[in-house]
Amino acid sequence: MARATHIKALALLPAFALAGLTMACGAGGTGSGGTSQPAGGTGATQSEEIPAVAKDPALAAKVPQAIAADGKIIVGQDQSYAPNEFVDAQGKVVGFDVDLGNAVGQKLGLTMEYQNAAFSGILAGLASGQYELAMSSFTVNPERLQTVDMVSYYRAGTSLGVPKGNPEHISLDDLCGKNIAVQQGTVQVDDLAARSQQCTAAGKPAINVQQFQAQTDVNLQVQTRRSQAMLADSPVVDYAIKQTGGAVETVGQPYDAAPYGIALKKGQGTYAEAVQGAVQALIDDGTYAKILAKWGLNPSGTLTKAELNPAS
């Protein structure tokens, strides 16, 4: 994720936050609890269903037999990051990444099986063979490209979210001494570390970076005003604003836009090419645009070309 305490007045929280709290308790990073999503269906609660796409035999042939043999791809995912990947009120795994991942699976003739995990541990699980693909709003950056291959599929920035009305007059230019919530393992953690160093170098107090395992906890921290602000991916903050009826708002514009990437273990022959080809086919046939529209992602992040290991 460009990426990603609790409880006070729970009765005032929207359904998505309550569902996220229940889910977040299980997001301990073990990945032991998997949720299978057939390649032909998303289970999403949004009104629009995404039509199934046809298998592409040429792309399917590029998937290593060791992965294709059981008919499924095991996907590591932190399901606390609405609208990209989350658990809905019916307990189903849904979201932009889920719909797009399922469509990729259809192109490759395989079922995607999503396993919930702590975001900070997913790439390690990919390296160890626990997962065969990771799709969880990972921002493409040079550090990640050293250890995994990545296929780009959307471009998102970072947004600053604050409680409604911005009662503490928070601004991105001066977070020194403030309590800022963020999800563990995200690029926003590094961003805040750099900003905090600038604060102390200028003789100001350091930023109090409050890290949480699940993005749902970050959102709740701001809603309940236990944190003065949060940093998260722009689609995530936009969705939190909608789902909380404006209890959260943004300050300024998104910044440091970079592509999301599907992560794959290096050295697996033509597997990465198969995934890149599948995403490109979905862009070309219009399925990708339908999925973005369904989940309300900003069209400004739309990609026309899925790239393997793009420059961030």
Rank of each mutant, 00 (worst) to 15 (best):
A4G: 09
H6Y: 09
L13C: 05
L13V: 02
A19T: 07
A19K: 00
Q37W: 05
G43N: 09
A44L: 01
K55G: 01
P64S: 06
V75I: 11
N84K: 01
G91E: 09
V98M: 03
D99Q: 06
G101H: 05
N102C: 06
K107P: 08
G109E: 09
M112S: 05
E113S: 13
Y114N: 07
A124V: 03
N141K: 05
E143V: 14
T147K: 15
C176R: 14
C176N: 12
K178I: 07
Q184E: 15
Q188F: 04
Q198V: 07
Q198R: 15
C199S: 11
A201H: 11
G203S: 12
T216L: 02
V218R: 03
L220F: 00
Q221L: 04
Q223F: 02
A229L: 08
P235T: 13
I241R: 11
Q243D: 01
V251T: 06
P254A: 14
Y255H: 10
A258D: 01
K266H: 02
Q268M: 11
Q268C: 00
Q268P: 00
V275W: 09
Q276I: 08
G277V: 14
L282K: 05
I283P: 04
D284R: 06
T287K: 07
I291T: 06
G301C: 10
A306W: 14
P310M: 11
S312Q: 11
